[in-house]
Design a protein around this nucleic acid. Structure first.
Lengths: 346, 346
DNA sequence: ATGAAAGCGCTAACAA
DNA sequence: TTGTTAGCGCTTTCAT
């Protein structure tokens, strides 16, 4: 709309040097006389020059941007799409992912482009976007077990890194947390505080995260003599946690400890427990998973298995960097250790 | 990393026409013989051609991307930054904004680049980013009353549209909801269902939204004979709502209706109420504001004043479009009507 | 209706 | 150390 933006040429003229020299100081390439460097810097300041990124990208073949794609599964209609974005963002987990990614990207001045891939058309769009070179690679967070996007990305050999191991193997790097260890941590804590009748609200068993948190919890309990542990499957949402807890209570009114496979469900469990006249943690101890904002956004603050999400997300970004720059070519998986955070609920 | 991407030139050779012709069919410019058009389309398919966006942007001077900036106020440190992103995303409100924006942007194949402007350095980055032409304009959502970004954007005459009227006037377009009308709706509903002792938990009074929702509520009540209404100021968070409700209860144990200036605080109020042995809505009716996911993510589902956030966000994107394309030059404000949604809590 | 050709602003050989 | 120059892939007059 406004004034015509100054170009390298303008700065060069202003400083009385060539375009190439200006380009060199802009890009911090050495072999430039300090005096001239200063001259150029002043000219840049005077002209208010800012490098045109399209021009640069055209020659460097790099967008300095990555797609941050939030991926679903189905062939959702336009209607459902709006809800999809809202739902994803409602998950307190996602904010930490973004924070971790931005933390890594920002110092490198690369920026995340937000994309949703909840339908076939949307997935196609992601591929096109990357194909056009508008982003150098993709960071993908799937919300479903059978998300087709990772495979598509791999097939097109586009640089991409996933959050969490996909349900079926895909030759793509990913980061994850040691879910089994997390389940174990929860079990041991419950036992250590004296629980005799532990139960669990698992995540969706179609997801590796759901299976493994459960397996870790069960194994640790089995090793300590609890062969059969009541399980109710949840869907990682508040309501499913509430319902699962109610079901558990109906079958086993004497439970005194619950491990919920995420914080949202733990919150739901707390509410169900209160609705049934049980105090947390006096009557029933509750351990969550994630350490999301949901863990401390109301009382009782949740004792929970912390996933170092920010670190994991930063590592995703780092891996993607390496794939983009060709420093790493083989798919790699980096697994982080969970950590028990003891608060009020157990 | 992989195969060299095909260019216009390649397609042209393949189809036996000139680059210009291929460009024309790619961009849907008429004046191209239908037969040749088909020929070119086939060549495109065969080669798997995808236009290089950097090259296109270089000549069109358009990035086909907009910055979606979430803006704070202070001069926050790096440390606090991580928390900032997580906090913003935790607000169920933000997901709807994103959904509305993406709904408008996607059909036009423009994409949102996520940026946080919570510190002076980060704000500078936003300006640079736009100055470099990496995005054509900015959609900004401020979380604080004294956010300096809008003024900076206006000063640099960069295309930008705000969500909500800024606390101090800035020559930038924005969308908003009629807060006063919303407050009035809440008051009338409470009265209509028989409340005799209404009170309110206001938003931060530094924000126009805080002031006006309160003013609308008060005015409507005053007109119906309730001259003095108990008010507790909250901070739009769950905890502040809980605390405010507790304070209200301490001073006025007989309240029978509460208008909370957003859903998060309404949830906090519900919890405080329950903690004090009051049933919702039997003993105390609660009305929220926003109709965010928080309104229905647990029981009782909230009766609330719905802000048509998706529509507002879409309108933001539309306005920005117009500013970018020069179809609109003067700052404009578009105000949406709120709507009462009656559910369980009142 | 189609083609030829001139750039858009930048980087990166290559020369000097 | 600095300058010259050749593109990067695309759109867009201007001819034809």
């Amino acid at each position: 709309m406004s004034r015509q933006a100054p170009t390298l040429e303008d700065v060069a003229r202003e400083a009385g040097v060539s375009r190439a020299t200006v380009s060199r100081v802009v890009n911090g390439v050495r072999n430039v006389d300090p005096a001239i460097q200063e001259l150029v810097r002043q000219a840049i300041r005077r002209t208010g020059y800012a490098p045109n990124r399209a021009a640069r990208s055209l020659v460097t073949r790099r967008a300095e941007a990555v797609a941050l794609v939030v991926s679903g599964a189905g062939d959702t209609s336009e209607e459902a799409q709006a809800g999809f974005a809202a739902r994803v963002f409602a998950d307190p987990f996602f904010g930490r992912v973004v924070a971790g990614i931005v933390g890594h990207l920002r110092p490198r001045s690369v920026h995340p482009v937000l994309m949703f891939a909840e339908s076939a058309a949307a997935r196609e769009e992601v591929l096109t976007y990357l194909g056009q070179g508008r982003a150098d690679g993709a960071l993908v967070v799937s919300s479903h077990a059978d998300d087709p996007l990772p495979a598509l990305l791999a097939e097109a050999s586009l640089p991409a890194v996933l959050f969490a191991r996909p349900a079926r193997p895909v030759p793509l790097s990913h980061v994850d947390v040691a879910h089994r260890d997390g389940g174990r941590l929860a079990a041991e804590h419950l036992l250590a505080r004296g629980c005799r009748r532990p139960a669990t609200i698992s995540g969706p068993l179609a997801l590796p995260a759901g299976q493994e948190r459960l397996a870790g919890f069960r194994d640790a309990l089995a090793r300590r003599g609890h062969a059969r542990v009541p399980v109710a499957e949840g869907g990682f949402t508040h309501d499913s946690g509430l319902a699962a807890m109610a079901a558990l209570l109906a079958e086993h009114p004497d439970v005194d400890g619950v491990f919920a496979a995420n914080d949202l469900m733990a919150r739901g469990a707390c509410q169900a427990l209160r609705d049934h006249g049980r105090r947390v943690p006096e009557d029933v101890a509750v351990v969550g998973f994630d350490d999301s904002t949901a863990a401390v956004d109301r009382h009782p603050h949740l004792t929970t298995v912390r996933q170092p999400v920010e670190d994991m997300a930063a590592e995703m970004a780092r891996l993607l960097d390496e794939h983009i720059h060709g420093t790493r070519t083989d798919p790699t998986s980096v697994v982080f250790a969970p950590e028990l955070v003891v608060r009020e609920s157990a």
